[in-house]
């Protein structure tokens, strides 16, 4: 019965009969339909979740299987050997020999440049939007920053070629070279403005909205009592932000940085457009280079040997492992952060 007896007795006889009628016929049907619907809902949602898990397993399986020939041929040395020679003619030295050293280096350095630029800028945007700007201004700027994340990477890559490259080449690279040229990483400006540095800057544009959006939410979630507690003790806003807000959200900031890193590591197209497809590790950031993702995008279609295809799969495997480690790291740190937050509340 749908109705409790006390309630039913309180009704007039006619209403009671009506309600019983509903309870017996319509309600009964509805309950059956509901039960079926509930089971179907459970089944479908579980299936969808399982499909995602199965997809990851299939992708990993395919990538591992594909890279097997290269793994058995080059072993772990693939990670640091810098020869990448798809040529099959027997006269060429090291023909059909592959190593991802240049690509691993390029991936790590472009991602590092991206984070060095995007993390401080993103935190600054987060601080401004969450604590310093007036509500109306934040309501305009916040969505615009997030909109940056929805610009397709190929368009940012184009912008990197058309706008950023000439600007870096004519202005930024000479300035950095004349001021910090003695450090060797800021060598002679390249001829085009394309290269590792350009790719890093382009990646920073893609990482920036991630860092800005996450840190803004982190800072907004710092309990108001803590912020006011600091101000009430005669702290300036900067002292409050530095010692209370940034301090209590530091693990969240690290997690956001790792999520940004994951984005930078995996980006292929925009890097292909701006990095200049170099084949050697050079000290100068202004030199050409290449990354794991970019090399796969460049060469997979036109690969000339099975070993080259397998080596590209091996690159994909390395990238996959890097991404998984970054994601797991972010989740571990975020979990720790959540526990800390729980303790504050």
């Amino acid at each position: 019965m749908l109705l409790c007896p006390a309630m039913a007795h309180a009704e007039t006889t006619a209403t009671e009969a009506d309600l019983r009628q509903i309870g017996r016929s319509g309600g009964g049907l509805r309950r059956m339909a509901d039960r079926f619907g509930d089971r179907a809902l459970l089944g479908l949602t579980a299936l969808a979740s399982l499909a995602a898990v199965a997809l990851i397993a299939l992708v990993i399986d395919r990538v591992v299987a594909g890279s097997m020939p290269s793994i058995s041929k080059f072993g772990l040395g693939f990670l640091w050997h810098t020869t990448w020679n798809p040529s099959l003619s027997s006269g060429v030295r090291d023909s059909n020999v592959f190593g991802a050293g240049v690509l691993v280096y390029g991936t790590l350095v472009t991602s590092a440049i991206a984070l060095l630029i995007a993390v401080p800028l993103g935190i600054a945007i987060g601080v401004y939007l969450s604590m310093l700007s007036s509500g109306r201004l934040a309501a305009v700027i916040g969505p615009l920053v997030e909109l940056l994340a929805s610009v397709p990477s190929v368009i940012i890559g184009l912008w990197g070629i058309v706008v950023l490259a000439p600007f870096l080449h004519s202005t930024i690279e000479p300035a950095l070279h004349s001021a910090l040229g003695w450090t060797a990483i800021f060598g002679e400006p390249g001829t085009t403005g394309l290269g590792i540095f350009n790719a890093g800057v382009v990646l920073s544009i893609m990482v920036l909205p991630i860092i800005a959006a996450i840190t803004r939410d982190l800072f907004l979630n710092v309990p108001r009592e803590l912020k006011e507690g600091a101000l009430a003790l005669g702290a300036t806003r900067w002292e409050m932000i530095r010692t209370v807000v940034l301090h209590s959200t530091r693990s969240g900031i690290i997690a956001a940085t790792i999520l940004g890193l994951a984005r930078a590591l995996g980006e292929a197209i925009a890097v292909t457009q701006t990095i200049g497809a170099g084949t050697a590790i050079k000290a100068s950031l202004f030199a050409n280079g290449d990354t794991l993702g970019s090399r796969i995008a460049e060469q997979f279609i036109g690969a000339v040997s099975k070993l080259q295809v397998s080596s590209l799969f091996y690159c994909a495997l390395i990238l996959l492992v890097m991404e998984l480690m970054a994601n797991i790291g972010a989740q571990l740190i975020a979990g720790r952060y959540a526990r800390l937050q729980g303790a504050v509340r």
Partner: peptide
């Protein structure tokens, strides 16, 4: 800032910083 330094305030809900007892006082 100078006003708040001379006129202290304690709030409805206890709001210690997520730091040690010593660091809360020394902050």
């Amino acid at each position: 800032v100078e006003v708040r330094r001379r006129i202290g305030m304690v709030f409805q809900r206890p709001n210690p910083f997520p730091k040690s007892i010593y660091d809360n006082i020394a902050w």
